[in-house]
Simulated assay, not measured.
Amino acid sequence: MDMEGTTMKKGMPFSKEQISRANRVNLIDFAKSNGYILENGGRRALHAKQSGGLYFFKDNNKYYHFSTDTHGGPIDFVMQFWNMEFKKAVAYLLESELPQYQPTSQPVKEQGQLVLPEKAPNFRRVAWYLIHVRGIDPEIVSCLMHEKKLYQDKSGNCVFVGYDHEGMVKYCSLRGTRLEHPFKQDRPYSDKSYPFHIVGNSHKVYVCESPIDAMSHATLAKLASQDWKTDHRISLGCLSDQALKRFLHYYPNIAEIVFFLDNDKDATFQNGSPAPNWGQEAALNFVKKYLDLGYTSVIATPVTEDLNGDLLAYHNIIHNKERCGTLDYGIEL
């Protein structure tokens, strides 16, 4: 879906120049003015929170939506996310008083290198945050720190690291630990096709959206008296399967894939109308794709919004049952 090449049709109430002007409305400014919360999504893009893997590109005034595999410019965006027909989308954009997108000269493509943030003298804040705020098991936190997949930077952020098969750093994602100032960001030159990986030794992989979700699932397994080191767990970092494809290339013995993506059951569009359940729609598309490729593929859905929400809810149940003296450790994974 891309209306860039739209031409004047018979009876069309807009001229070519008006259509072109609508498609030159600055898409990032438009998204911000309509309530999208944008964060760094890499050198070229901004990521919209809780929007099913929605990215806006700074250098071409376009967007890409991973959940639906759709892309385009401002007109396409309004048609898709405001559910408008073409004429209404053009009129809506023309009525906005936002600045026009000003293309910049294309710089020579940089061959930059991912640089990890400097480590803090100790990792106490990250350990406190993951164990006491997020409910992650201390052994799992300690193990990942020992494997250099998790540490604390000098700003107190969680740093999650992904490697290639030769142990070279390829992916780095930061997560803030200050509850009053939520923060999440990928480092420049970070490659999302290299997953954050909790290593296992079985033929099964659990696919999660974030590193904290992967750690939460490992914790739930341990709480259920399972060996959390048996199965592989990876995080996609978004709703693209690039990281899964690379993982499967590195681990050809994998036979079963469990998609444990977010349950965005309460998602809404910017106008407040119900939006699709982005995480589960992506999981459904992935299951079909990987079944066709010969893998045993299934969907597991969090009861709450995500796996960390499930873990925190479980801790709360345990706490309440301990107080009442009716402890039951049954967990379904």
Rank of each mutant, 00 (worst) to 15 (best):
F183M: 04
E281T: 06
G156L: 10
L174A: 10
F57R: 07
H71V: 02
G237W: 06
L144W: 01
Q106M: 02
Q113L: 11
Y314K: 01
I19L: 03
H65M: 09
F183C: 02
L293A: 14
D164R: 11
G330H: 12
L174I: 11
E17A: 14
L174T: 14
I331N: 03
F260T: 04
H249S: 08
S155I: 02
T70L: 07
G42F: 14
Y92H: 09
L130P: 08
Q106G: 00
K154H: 10
N122S: 10
D227F: 03
L236R: 01
F56Y: 08
F196C: 04
S96K: 06
D306H: 12
W228V: 01
R178W: 05
I318V: 13
P188L: 05
L38W: 15
S240Q: 08
Q226P: 00
K149H: 13
A45V: 03
S273K: 13
Q113N: 10
F247D: 07
D76L: 01
Y250L: 05
V287T: 14
L54I: 07
C143Q: 09
Y251S: 03
I131Y: 00
N26H: 15
M168K: 15
K10R: 12
Y151S: 07
P13W: 09
Y151P: 10
T68V: 01
Q226W: 03
I19Y: 06
E322G: 12
S190N: 04
L293N: 02
P252C: 07
A89T: 04
E39T: 15
A313S: 12
E4K: 14
F81D: 11
I136M: 11
I212A: 01
H165V: 10
H232L: 02
I318G: 00
D292M: 11
A275K: 04
G167Q: 07
V25H: 10
H65F: 11
R24M: 15
L98W: 02
I234A: 03
F14C: 05
E85T: 05
N263F: 10
G325F: 15
N285A: 13
G237A: 03
H47Y: 15
S155T: 11
F247T: 06
A275Y: 06
Q100P: 00
